[in-house]
Design a protein around this nucleic acid. Structure first.
Length: 421
RNA sequence: GGAGGGGUGGCCGAGUGGUUGAAGGCGGCGGUCUUGAAAACCGCUUCUCGAGCAAUCGGGACGGGGGUUCGAAUCCCUCCCCCUCCGCCA
């Protein structure tokens, strides 16, 4: 969330940011509540101060055996007033928090202004899409013909948007997971394997709740949420902590399954592995000092890109425009991989700098060496990479006329085979 | 799931309803001493909110929330977490 003091002093900047994102709200109501809040605080604190002074006085009188009943009577009334004001303040605080939790991050100045996907800006390309001397197939045709993915039985087991990987298909999921984790850890990311069910506070910390509850699977008794991305548990590793400056930056990488309701995407990518309720992903997460976070975003994106390069998969990088930017992000690069079966680039990684937005929600701070007080860290994360979509890209880019699929060089040690047939 | 025992500052650990933001210790920082270091000694060591240009002043925080009271770390209720034993279980 944003700093209420920042909003107070920069209302027009925040309103402008909301407008660029296509939000039809302003901070007017928030500001008047904030004024009300401060007025209440001043009133209630003056009364508390009075009560503290008089309580000491009462204590002294009682010790010396004098009568304090008049003061006690007065304080009884003061306490009642404090109680009333406290309740009022609590109500105002609650309303301010509700509003604050629903205001998105402010886009970085380098983010292009635009309304949607079509306004995202390509920043670079790598690799040449392969030219086929036959008609390239969709990954679901390739996968079903090879018998390595079974959609029909998956839907019997769980329903639409689930998949059952078999044989070399299951092996490929595992190979990709190991390949990615090993590459990431070799660069200094610490491997973690976190809970994939998390509590409400964690979902609020990274920004999925309260606004996007429709996207999440939830359990009852106890109320827990299935993670839509490892970003949630991994960023929350340091929730409510004060880190030491010398501990930063902290890099984590995590493999987890991810679960998404995909509410509102009916009819989109109904066939194949592109859009599933459950998918595997390896994630990269960073906790850094504010002054380095944009440099770190470039590094994070480069780390994700390297995975595609090593797999020989052509891709492009786009910077998301203000209208397409995620709720908590200040800047995001999407990496899109070339899919011959679709004849276009599709998102395979999303690398974002959240600046202090998540850190403020989650209470993740650090203390500078020799300085008083604390600051919020900057958090970043990106897929490195979405495993299901990487598998799709391999099937489509490495398919051969006879229906077999070559295994990319880098993956062969993990697959134990050169070709899937 | 059943029965008990606990949650206090970076850590360990005191704490009688009334100068206890909290003894003492450890750790950390600064200083004295020393050729240097150690030891010893001295001092300093939480976060947060509000007012103010500032110096500074005031409020709050002893797992979370509520209650009793003029006043709560201390009493009561409730939730969460940890530990031990029993049961169950991958």
């Amino acid at each position: 969330m944003l700093d209420i003091r920042f909003i107070r002093e920069n209302a027009q900047i925040v309103d402008e940011a909301l407008r660029k994102r296509g939000y039809g709200i302003t901070v007017d109501e928030l500001l008047s509540l904030e004024t009300e809040r401060r007025g209440l605080i001043q009133k209630v604190e003056a009364l508390r101060n009075r009560r503290n002074i008089v309580s000491d006085e009462i204590s002294r009188l009682r010790r010396s055996g004098e009568d304090a009943s008049a003061l006690i009577a007065e304080m009884k009334e003061v306490s009642e007033r404090i109680k009333g004001l406290d309740e009022e303040l609590k109500g105002v605080d609650g309303r301010i928090r509700d509003l604050l939790l629903n205001i998105p991050n402010i886009p970085h100045s380098s983010v292009p202004v635009g309304e949607g996907e079509e306004d995202n800006v390509e920043v670079r390309r790598w690799g040449e899409p392969r030219s086929f001397d036959f008609e390239p197939l969709n990954h679901w045709d390739i996968g079903e013909t090879l018998g390595i993915v079974d959609f029909e039985r998956a839907s019997r087991i769980a329903g639409a948007r689930f998949s059952l990987m078999k044989g070399a298909g299951a092996r490929l999921e595992r190979a990709l997971m190991n390949f990615m984790l090993e590459l990431n850890t070799s660069k200094g990311y610490v491997e973690v394997f976190p809970p994939i069910l998390v509590n409400r506070e964690s979902m609020i910390g990274t920004g999925q709740l309260p606004k996007f509850h429709m996207e999440l699977f939830r359990t009852m008794e106890p109320e827990l949420y299935l993670i839509p991305t490892a970003e949630v548990p991994v960023t929350n590793i340091h929730r409510e902590e004060i880190l030491n400056e010398k501990d930063l930056p902290i890099y984590y990488t995590a493999y987890t399954p991810c679960f998404r309701r995909e509410a509102g995407s009916y009819g989109k990518d109904t066939r194949g592995l592109i859009r599933q309720h459950q998918f595997n992903k390896v994630e990269l997460v960073k906790f850094v000092k504010p002054e380095t976070s944009y440099e770190e975003l470039e590094g994070l994106t480069a780390d994700a890109e390297e995975i595609l390069r090593r797999l020989g998969l052509p891709y492009r990088v786009v910077v998301l425009c203000t209208g397409d930017l995620g709720f908590s992000a200040a800047k995001t690069y999407d990496i899109e991989v070339w899919l011959p079966g679709q004849g276009r680039y599709r998102e395979i990684s999303s690398c974002s700098n959240f600046e202090d937005y998540q850190a403020r929600r989650a209470g993740i701070r650090f203390r500078r060496e020799g300085k008083k007080g604390t600051e919020f860290v900057h958090t970043l994360n990106g897929s490195g990479l979405a495993i299901g979509r990487t598998l799709v890209a391999i099937l489509e880019n490495y398919q051969q006329r006879d229906g077999s699929v070559l295994v990319p060089e880098a993956l062969r040690p993990y697959m134990g085979m050169d070709v899937i047939r």
